[in-house]
Design a protein around this nucleic acid. Structure first.
Lengths: 224, 224
DNA sequence: CATTTTTAATAGTAATACTATTATTTAAAA
DNA sequence: TTTTAAATAATAGTATTACTATTAAAAATG
């Protein structure tokens, strides 16, 4: 069975919905690829236009600027992740087991769960790891927040915090802990790859020790 | 008694040591101020030059580009923080007490501890909170790391991890935990100010609950 | 005092981040 | 089927950014 998924994002993210045209989908898919190869700072609409054989001005008709495209992609990931977590938690009753599922969903980018998605999970995972925090580390966070641009992240955080509260209803910081999990699953992975002395993980590909670290952190602080 | 402090930073950070001239110190001090008001993306050397009444080209003689200036300032902060932690840990024997001191040093930017420093702690703290991760979230992290550009951060992380290991020598992830403390002390504070639903802290100025959250996290996971 | 050496300003350039306007295609109404 | 309008994309710009090469002025040294 192939699962179908349609991710609907905040209309304020774009000027024209990129999902509704072939060109729009190309902008998003190739934009993701190009940001990942060049890094967000060196990425420009001009370079993207060349890549997909259109013009800069045309891309501006879809996205106000490259930051909006970044937020679009990052939001896509958080929305996707919340779907994924929801599916993974299906039929699981043990809160402890639920948290384990959440952590592995955060750390391991599964090969595409949904068949009809034109954005690759592995690629957006990398994007979020390298560029994700740049979506909110700006002087207009508050304005962007008023436009609900961070809703997918906040929703995911809230959902994880519910699982946390299930395990220990008296715990005072479920959101902060959920958020720590979200941030650290990316930060520590980034450090493992690029600045390994900031972690205690071996060089191999496996994420076992990162998962162990996060699980221990959560279970210990939630112990009654 | 006024404590004196001389922070010596990696020579690869600058083309000409800004500490050695009045103009250089102005570039650093005003640069910090201007990045904080404009945000790193909108900050330019031209704007800074206007502010301190010099030319863009002159600033380029001190720093290769604005990213190097950012790394310079961020490194200044980590080095300063390591000094601060060292002083705060003086004469303290209880590992648990040491960790408490570390956490409060991370979270609370003290009004300048050292009298002769031309950079304000509160301002660099804000800089690191808003722009800090942009110093390493680039495509040349690895090259920058080879040039030792992240040494102050790694040193601080290593030092905190030693305190962690003192409390529980068997704990397997002292660096990752130290790093989590460092990152979360800034991230959660940023969220408290800008995206409060990602935290569980009240709106007041006090950092008591953030400190409580972090202390609990560390002590619980280090419990034998 | 002459002369290096250091320091800073002038005057550029290629690229970036946009925008206004025009042209072309597609779709709907007459 | 034609006309008209609406949507879409390309052309051609501009102001700003991120630099650099060259020259001029000031300071340090012999």
């Amino acid at each position: 069975m192939a699962l179908s998924l349609r991710i609907i994002l905040n209309e304020k993210l774009y000027l024209k919905n990129p999902e509704e045209s072939l060109l729009g989908r190309k902008i998003v898919a190739e934009g993701l690829r190009l940001i990942n190869t060049l890094g967000f700072e060196d990425f420009t609409f001009k370079k993207l236009a060349k890549e997909i054989e259109t013009t800069e001005a045309t891309i501006y008709r879809y996205f106000e600027n490259k930051h909006r495209l970044l937020v679009y992609l990052v939001n896509w990931y958080w929305t996707y992740l919340e779907y994924k977590v929801t599916i993974q938690l299906n039929n699981i009753v043990e809160p402890k087991e639920k948290i384990k599922k959440v952590i592995s969903a955060l750390v391991i980018p599964a090969s595409n769960l949904f068949s009809d998605v034109f954005i690759e999970e592995k690629a957006v995972f990398d994007l979020v790891m390298y560029e994700g925090s740049k979506s909110y580390l700006t002087r207009n966070v508050k304005d962007n927040n008023k436009d609900n641009l961070f809703k997918p992240y906040k929703d995911l955080c809230a959902r994880i915090s519910l699982v946390i509260s299930e395990l220990n209803p008296k715990y005072k910081y479920p959101h902060s802990l959920a958020c720590t999990l979200l941030e650290m699953s990316h930060t520590q992975k980034f450090f493992k790859i690029n600045l390994p002395s900031l972690t205690d993980f071996s060089k191999d590909k496996s994420d076992a020790s990162l998962i162990d670290f996060l699980e221990k952190l959560v279970f210990d602080t939630l112990k009654k």
